[in-house]
Design a binder for these strands. Structure first.
Lengths: 206, 206
DNA sequence: ATCTGGTTTAACAATGTTGTCAAACTAAAA
DNA sequence: TTTTAGTTTGACAACATTGTTAAACCAGAT
């Protein structure tokens, strides 16, 4: 079919990016072959090179896209003017539900993080997001006596950990902790949204 | 040199396993080549096959060893008869300091977990460790009023998350949160041992 | 009907990786 | 010294993967 306008080319590009995302996120960069991606997209392998030149280029596009979406979601919440407690509440909500539909993403990110830290740090700097702004919000709330006084950096790390780790470790949680109890992982995580808010907010509100 | 007794063969095997551990843990299974491992060990590549038959076999030995050490450490603490609060305290200690010297391990495990869950679950079952026993300890302490009443499963997940995630996400924490503040990651984690105990125990003691 | 531009394909070369094998090596035993 | 058994090495074949190229294809424009 002729490329009569931009949207058609973009249509194929989208198809490829979607397939590549699935494969890269599941298997990681090195273990993903161009053939696997082509199969997933239902197209000839050579088309991947035609549209994206090389595996490296394709990977970077996919990675940047996924990372940007994650960062942007955080930015929207953190930079908004809502109350700090409400912010934290939403943060838990948005990330757990968001990642629940794509549980391979955390490990995918962590993996690239370990093998190629510069790439990610560059992206992060370009994004302009400053997680430290959250620290200031927290300190302010502590001064006002609305939040218990504790180390704000560790508090932030605690929150991110409790949100992200269970998703990254899905097979571990499901297999080692939930299976004997006959609990479904997704149910557990849905419940977790409520329970984590309860636990975390209780732990910081005097 | 002739293999006059067991220990000599074991010496080379040890050398290989150490090198393979380093390479596999850093780069993951697929991205690690036998050549890379041989270079790390300073030996001829063919020797790897001579001693361990195949890459798969070598990988499984390395992985099982690392996983077993992790599990065993947990078992020692959890199965001991010390007080629950002391148990949790030690758990934080042992895992943060242990993984700090080997920060690539968490992602390595998580990665294998995602791409090959059966392998790990089999290992886990063979180990005989029951993390659920911790749940019973916690419930007992809750009944005695020594620990605040909350969902024990989520509590366990919270603890594991706060311990393991920052180590898995070292470049993220270091690059996105600590770098502006001029804080060294290892210092931060040493401090974290204290701060996390404080935070976690405070959050569960009435 | 032919031309023309982007698109798709099969075939190819280059490279990397794994595992095997036979030959070379080494140090102790006979 | 020669033999012997385990060890080490280089060479090889098989296979997977990547990226290129030239040819085939296709639908609208001329």
């Amino acid at each position: 079919m002729l490329k009569s306008d931009e949207s058609l080319s973009t249509e194929m590009e989208q198809k490829i990016i979607n397939a590549a995302s699935k494969v890269f996120v599941k298997w990681g960069k090195k273990a993903s072959s161009m053939q696997l991606i082509a199969d997933e997209a239902g197209i000839n392998r050579t088309l991947l090179n035609y549209y994206f030149r090389s595996k490296d280029k394709l990977f970077n596009i996919v990675f940047d896209k996924i990372f940007f979406e994650l960062i942007q979601k955080a930015a929207e919440i953190l930079e908004s003017d809502i109350d700090i407690i409400e912010k934290l509440d939403r943060f838990i909500d948005v990330y757990i539900s968001g990642l629940l539909s794509n549980p391979y993403i955390p490990v995918f990110i962590l993996n690239e993080l370990n093998t190629n830290p510069e790439h990610l740090l560059k992206l992060f700097k370009d994004s302009g997001l400053k997680p430290i702004r959250l620290k200031e919000d927290i300190i302010k709330a502590m001064d006002q006596g609305r939040i218990i006084k504790t180390d704000p950096l560790h508090l932030i790390v605690n929150l991110i950990s409790m949100i992200a780790f269970p998703l990254a470790a899905k097979p571990l949680i499901a297999g080692m902790i939930l299976s004997d109890q006959n609990i479904d992982f997704d149910d557990f995580m849905q419940e977790r949204i409520v329970k984590l808010k309860e636990y975390f907010l209780n732990s910081i509100i005097p």
